[in-house]
């Protein structure tokens, strides 16, 4: 496979980079990334990946675009209200870069469908807004051996890290399982600034590109924590947990299951 002149021009500003070059661009064009959640995190992530020429992008989300989404979910426009998010997002991505193959899955991830979907992808981006989905993605990626980028945002804060299953600490190494119901912020406490989603989603896209290109140091075994109010980035180092119920020495989780959602209506603050 070699690059066409139009492609060389389109991607020239990254082909210039020693770490990318034509070879790297070809890698990106041959890569497949699944984005779970076409919301606040999925918006910037999917747009940057499409722009960068990631050949195949999968989008999975079961929701419909709502007026309250538009404050932060920049892949959707006012005219999209009422249409399924994956369809709205796919249109935008194709408009940015027609060469990108966009596959859409108009459903939510469940223990029943996730393995079948992620098996076709090289990397997964977790852009979901709830703990059960995050644990499900973590577990599925571990069983399927798929690297993924975890992220979460709330109010003025965001966090992310990358997981190479079996090689670096996973989400459960840190948190074990979903927090008890009373530890989860109530709806009234949980707002979010749109720009925070943009920062963290863009970092996920950057991390994905690094992984696909095989350059730099991945955000593994450390979590990047963003505090927009203080405008600080902080790094928290950790390591694999021997007692991790998933990837530890004596795993207790040996198959996928859907965790219970521990809060009344988390959806009001979906990212």
């Amino acid at each position: 496979m070699s690059l066409r002149m139009e492609e060389i021009e389109r991607y020239s500003r990254q082909i210039i980079l020693k770490e990318v070059g034509g070879k790297g661009q070809e890698k990106l064009l041959a890569s497949r990334v699944l984005i779970v959640g076409a919301g606040g995190l999925g918006s910037p992530a999917s747009m940057y990946l499409a722009a960068a020429g990631v050949g195949t992008i999968g989008l999975i989300d079961g929701d419909i675009v709502d007026l309250t989404n538009l404050q932060r979910q920049i892949v959707h426009s006012t005219g999209d209200i009422g249409t399924p998010k994956v369809r709205s997002a796919a249109e935008k991505l194709r408009a940015i870069n027609p060469a990108v193959q966009v596959h859409t899955y108009e459903e939510r991830v469940t223990a029943g469908n996730i393995l079948d979907i992620i098996k076709d992808y090289d990397f997964v981006i977790d852009g979901t807004d709830n703990f059960p989905a995050k644990f499900l993605i973590n577990d599925a990626c571990y069983f399927a051996g798929k690297p993924f980028s975890h992220a979460g945002i709330l109010r003025f804060d965001g966090q992310l890290f990358t997981v190479l299953p079996g090689r670096s600490a996973c989400y459960r190494c840190l948190f074990g399982g979903p927090p008890p119901a009373n530890a989860v912020p109530s709806c009234a406490q949980a707002g979010v600034l749109g720009g925070v989603a943009g920062v963290i989603g863009s970092l996920q896209a950057t991390e994905t590109l690094k992984y696909l290109l095989g350059v730099g140091e991945l955000l593994t075994d450390r979590m990047l924590v963003f505090d927009a109010l203080g405008m600080h980035f902080r790094e928290v180092g950790f390591r694999r947990n021997r007692r991790c119920p998933l990837c530890g020495e004596k795993p207790t989780i040996t198959e996928l299951r859907d965790e219970e959602q521990p809060v009344c209506d988390w959806r009001g603050t979906q990212v």
């Binding site: 060389i8 021009e9 210039i16 070059g21 034509g22």
Partner: peptide, 14 residues
């Protein structure tokens, strides 16, 4: 510039 550099670079990769 910088397209000339980009194209030279791609050619070298070949």
């Amino acid at each position: 510039c910088p397209m000339n550099f980009v194209r030279a670079k791609i050619q070298l990769e070949q």
